[in-house]
Amino acid sequence: MVAAVLLVVIGITVALILFFVGGYNRLITLRNRAKNAWSQVDVQLKRRHDLIPNLVETVKGYLKHEREVLENVVKARQQAIDVRGVAETAQAENMLSQTLRSLFAVVENYPDLKANQNMLALQEELTSTENKIAFARQFYNDQVMAYNTVIQQVPWSVFANTFNFEEMEFFEVEEAAQREAPKVTF
């Protein structure tokens, strides 16, 4: 009788331990996935930063009278490189996107530049990089959501507190700022 009770108790203990070890590992997996997704975003952001000097170099010769637009792009790029943290990065990158958009709006007025082979290739690369950033961000946010959802749910919420699993930040885009039409004088 005692032996039977003991067996049951041991059985339950082992099951509980297995359950929590499994849960812990799952949290780790989810967190690492989200972190890895962030590094994907980071790779694409860096790529954009790397493309910009090339773009400025190509455009510079043509845009003699729109120095300001170019300077804004360069400034926004530097800012985006300097910031740390998800929310700050998001904000700086949105700024950069906006300045790039104004630049492309200006480029529209230069048919020679628009037809430039180098410019065409750069435009495809920048468009694609913008897309990649958007898709990487989407994937990152999905992973963060999966992770955050788990650590907010019982029993993992208690567990997450004890073992310091913190909620991760979403990469938010300021929709309003993104949609703002570029202000171009003509």
């Binding site: 913008e130 993104q178 949609r179």
Partner: peptide
């Protein structure tokens, strides 16, 4: 207007 975001970055130029 907000439902169609500008993906290219054109301005309000007259073409």
């Amino acid at each position: 207007d907000h439902r169609f975001p500008n993906l290219i970055g054109y301005g309000w130029d007259r073409v």
